[in-house]
C-alpha cells in the first residue's frame, strides 16, 4: 500500500517536473545522476587507499586516493554532459498484435559540438537499445513497447541512461515523449469467414489493381472487363477456402464484414477479422473490410494488410498520437 502510494506520488512529481512533449531536450532539470555500484566500489578503494596512506604515513598513496576521488567528481560532470543537450523527438510507430511487442521510433539529435556516447534507451517493460550520436548527427532508434491491449497503448516514460565515460556514475532521464503504439487485435482463428462476396464488381480500383507492367503499350485491354463470377454463397456457408476460385488473384474480392459475425463481444469480433485478414493475405485473396462507420476498399498486399489491421486496431479508439 505504502509503496503504491509512494509510486503514484513519484509519478505525479515526474509529470509536473517533466510534462509530456513530442520533442524534448535533456536539460539540467531533466537529468538525474547517481553513482553506480561500481562507482561505490571505486570510492571504497579510494577510501581504503586513504587509510593505507595514513597508516603507512605515505603521502603519495594518499595523493593517489585523492586523485581517484577527484576523478570521480570530474566524472560526474562528464557523465552529466554526455546526456545533457541531447534532443529527442518522437518519431513513427510500428504497431503489433496485442500481447506482443510494437515499436516506437525516437529520433536523437546531437548539437554541433557534442557527442552523446553509449546511450541506453528503453520503454518500461522492454529491452534497452544502445546508441551513440556524433556531433551534429541525427540518429533514429526503434524501441520495442509491450502492447498490453488492443488500440492505443500509451508508452509511458522512456528511460534514457548513460554511464559513459567511466561507468562510475549513471545519468538518466525519464521522458514522456507523448508516444503511443497501436495494438492490433490478437488474431483469433475461426472456421467461418465473415465475408460476403462483392456484388459490385466494377469500380475505379479494378482497372488499376489489375494493371501491371505487362500491359504497357497494349491498348486492347478495356477497362471494366468482368472477371468470372464466384460462388460466394457456397463459400460463405463454410465449405472452406480451397476453392480454385481463389487461385487467380485478379478474379474477385471478399468483403470482410463486422456485421456478418454473430453477436459476440467487440474484441472477439475484431480478433476474428484480424485472423481472416492474415489468412486472406496468405492466400493471396483480395479483400476489403467493413466496420461500422468505416470501410476499406478491396486490395491485396502489405499496404492493405497494414491498413486493415490499423483499422481494426483503431476501432472505437479516440484518434490520438497516431501520426505515422
Amino acid at each position: 500500500m505504502a509503496t503504491a502510494g509512494m509510486r503514484s506520488l513519484y509519478r505525479r512529481w515526474l509529470d509536473r517536473r517533466m510534462p509530456a512533449a513530442r520533442q524534448q531536450q535533456l536539460t539540467q532539470r531533466r537529468i538525474f545522476i547517481l553513482p553506480t555500484g561500481y562507482g561505490v566500489f571505486f570510492m571504497v578503494i579510494a577510501g581504503s587507499l586513504f587509510l593505507g596512506g595514513i597508516n603507512y604515513e605515505n603521502n603519495l598513496i594518499m595523493a593517489l586516493s585523492f586523485l581517484m576521488t577527484s576523478l570521480f567528481m570530474i566524472a560526474i560532470l562528464h557523465t552529466f554532459r554526455n546526456l545533457s543537450g541531447l534532443v529527442l523527438r518522437a518519431g513513427r510507430m510500428a504497431p503489433g498484435f496485442a500481447g506482443t511487442d510494437g515499436a516506437l521510433e525516437l529520433v536523437l539529435h546531437a548539437g554541433d559540438q557534442q557527442a552523446h556516447t553509449g546511450l541506453w534507451l528503453a520503454y518500461p517493460g522492454a529491452a534497452p537499445e544502445e546508441v551513440s550520436v556524433s556531433p551534429g548527427e541525427e540518429k533514429n532508434v526503434w524501441l520495442s513497447v509491450p502492447l498490453r491491449r488492443r488500440g492505443y497503448n500509451r508508452a509511458g516514460r522512456v528511460r534514457i541512461e548513460s554511464r559513459y565515460p567511466l561507468g562510475l556514475l549513471r545519468a538518466w532521464s525519464l521522458l514522456d515523449m507523448d508516444q503511443a503504439c497501436l495494438g492490433w487485435p490478437r488474431p483469433l482463428a475461426s472456421e467461418e469467414c465473415p465475408a460476403g462476396g462483392g456484388e459490385q464488381l466494377q469500380g475505379q480500383y479494378a482497372g488499376r489493381q489489375r494493371g501491371s507492367d505487362d500491359f504497357q503499350g497494349l491498348r486492347s485491354y478495356q477497362e471494366g472487363d468482368s472477371p468470372r463470377q464466384v460462388d460466394w454463397k457456397a463459400y460463405a456457408a463454410g465449405r472452406g477456402l480451397h476453392s480454385k476460385h481463389f487461385a487467380d488473384p485478379a478474379e474477385g474480392w471478399l468483403w470482410l464484414d463486422w456485421s456478418l459475425l454473430p453477436a459476440m463481444d467487440t474484441e472477439t469480433r475484431l480478433g476474428r477479422l484480424a485472423w481472416w485478414v492474415l489468412a486472406l493475405e496468405q492466400r493471396q485473396q483480395r479483400y476489403g473490410l467493413r466496420l461500422p462507420g468505416t470501410e476499406l476498399p478491396p486490395a491485396l498486399g502489405a499496404d492493405q494488410r497494414r491498413r486493415a489491421l490499423d483499422m481494426l486496431g483503431l476501432y472505437g479508439e479516440n484518434i490520438q498520437g497516431g501520426e505515422h
Binding site: Q204, G207, G211, F215, Q216, G217, R219, E223
Partner: peptide, 14 residues
Amino acid sequence: TSDMLPADILGVSV
C-alpha cells in the same frame, strides 16, 4: 487524367 497510363506519356511499342 486518372485513366491515363504510363504509355500515354512515354509512348507505345507497336
